[in-house]
Each structure stands twice: as structure tokens, then as C-alpha cells.
């Protein structure tokens, strides 16, 4: 089966995000006073083959934890859909 995953990676809440802080500051300067916080992250689209959804999820977790994120500073979430 073919699956498509959308993976979001972000810095852990406890980690200061210099990029997010800078973007937030820029928004304030531009008059977007309603913006309260910004965290900059990464987005991956992964196409993968797996026997079933459970297996797809298992390999995706491995891919995320071994390669896509650095667990010291980052966390991730994903959505998985069967592709045609």
C-alpha cells in the first residue's frame, strides 16, 4: 500500500527559538500587535510503501526519531493518509 505522511517538526517548548523571536519582533514592528508568539518549524512530506497503516506508522516513527528530528531539541507530529 502507498501512504503519504505530513510531518511537522518543531522545537520543544523548553527550547528558545531565535528565528521565531525575530519573526515575532518583525510582526510587532509591522503593526501586527495581535501576534502573541511564533515558533518556526519544519514540514516534510513523506511518501512510503507499507503492508498496512500500522506498519506505515511504525516506519514513519522510526524515520522521524532516527533522522528527521534531533530529540535533544525537537519534537514531531504527523498525519498519515492512504494515497491512491
Amino acid at each position: 500500500m502507498s501512504y503519504k505522511a505530513q510531518v511537522h517538526v518543531s522545537l520543544k517548548k523548553s527550547v528558545l527559538d531565535p528565528q521565531g523571536k525575530t519573526v515575532l519582533h518583525a510582526l510587532g514592528t509591522l503593526g501586527f500587535k495581535e501576534a502573541r508568539d511564533i515558533r518556526v518549524g519544519k514540514y516534510f512530506e513523506v511518501a512510503l510503501e507499507a503492508a498496512d497503516e500500522k506498519k506505515a506508522e511504525e516506519s514513519l516513527r522510526k524515520i522521524c526519531e532516527r533522522v528527521l528530528i534531533n530529540p535533544v531539541i525537537e519534537e514531531y507530529s504527523f498525519t498519515l493518509t492512504k494515497s491512491a
Partner: peptide, 17 residues
């Protein structure tokens, strides 16, 4: 070395970007 786990910790973007 940090990514390989041979030393602890990780690197973030410089404070100034």
C-alpha cells in the same frame, strides 16, 4: 559529534541569526 551522540547537547541557530 553532537548529532552522532558522541557528545551531549545540540546546536541552535545563533541568537542573532
Amino acid at each position: 559529534l553532537l548529532e552522532a551522540g558522541l557528545l551531549p547537547g545540540a546546536m541552535l541557530r545563533n541568537r542573532s541569526l
